[in-house]
């Protein structure tokens, strides 16, 4: 990660969805600490999920999935209910960060991706650059907002509000390297208990090259799409070379067209 200070070890979240009970404490603890406004009172009809998606004013979001399939090894019935607390992934290569034209979004000493609310001018470019649909702009406010990994708390050596409140330790916070180790052990344990579906999502650059790994990664038991997570997200800047090349070609094209037209007209005009 070029241009990034390495003052502290990289911090991150490991969200183990098999431990989540869908209580939404993380959502509220986040709103409380960061003093976010509500996101509207709308009954969605989507199980118990009425916040629907991460957004400018919702930085933790719990997804509720009712599946007509069992979750091994529990409940022999043909039904299971999955919960997953979604959050900004603080990607190792972050689309929003690299897209931000003002330098409002920066990489912090904890390796997290932080939007400086005093700098952001609300251009909206980060919003379309995030392959997870995390960062968003609140219309009345005009700036882009997302999870800060509780940057202010980290500075005071406190853990993020969501991880602190989580009653079942589904959200774990710590040094990224430790979390990765823990997570791999956890998957092995679940496999040995018969939960063969368990896998890690985005825990390393190897498993998710498009983002070079997530600082907030997950343990899931179904396809990522089920949780509204992209199966193989790619940060746009990873492939932007194609576009720059095309731009060169385009510019060249303009030049040729202009020169051609000028030359053609000049020559033809001279003849006539």
């Amino acid at each position: 990660m070029p241009g990034q200070p390495q003052a502290a070890p990289v911090k991150g979240f490991f969200t183990d969805t098999t431990l989540c009970i869908g209580c939404k404490a993380c959502e509220v603890a986040c709103k409380q600490w960061n003093q976010l406004p509500d996101d509207g009172f709308l009954f969605t009809g989507m199980s118990y999920d009425n916040t629907a998606h991460l957004g400018a004013s919702t930085w933790r979001h719990v997804a509720f999935i009712e599946r007509p399939a069992p979750l091994h090894p529990q409940n022999e019935g043909a039904f299971s209910w999955l919960f997953s607390s979604d959050v900004c992934k603080h990607c190792a290569r972050a689309g929003c960060l690299e897209a931000c034209p003002t330098g409002a979004i920066i990489r912090t000493e904890f390796g997290s991706v932080y939007v400086q609310p005093d700098v952001c001018n609300g251009c909206g470019y980060c919003i379309v650059s995030c392959p997870f649909g995390v960062i968003d702009r609140r219309e009345e406010d005009g700036r882009a907002w997302k999870c800060t990994l509780c940057y202010d708390r980290l500075r005071a050596d406190m853990q993020p509000a969501c991880a602190k409140s989580c009653p079942t330790e589904s959200i774990q916070f710590g040094n990224l390297e430790d979390l990765r180790k823990q997570a791999r052990e956890r998957v092995e344990k679940l496999h040995s208990q018969g939960m063969r579906e368990a896998y890690l999502y985005g825990e390393s650059a190897a498993s998710q090259p498009g983002t070079e790994g997530l600082h907030a990664f997950f343990l899931l038991v179904d396809k990522p799409e089920v949780y509204n997570l992209p199966p193989d997200p790619i940060v746009p800047t990873k492939t932007v070379k194609d576009a720059w090349t095309a731009m060169a070609a385009g510019a060249l094209g303009i030049a040729l067209a202009a020169l051609g037209a000028a030359f053609f007209a000049h020559k033809n005009g001279a003849q006539s």
């Binding site: 098999t18 009970i21 869908g22 090894p73 529990q74 409940n75 209910w81």
Partner: peptide, 10 residues
């Protein structure tokens, strides 16, 4: 089948 059932073995 509640949030308790969701994480129960049975």
């Amino acid at each position: 089948f509640t949030r308790t059932s969701a994480v129960s073995d049975i």
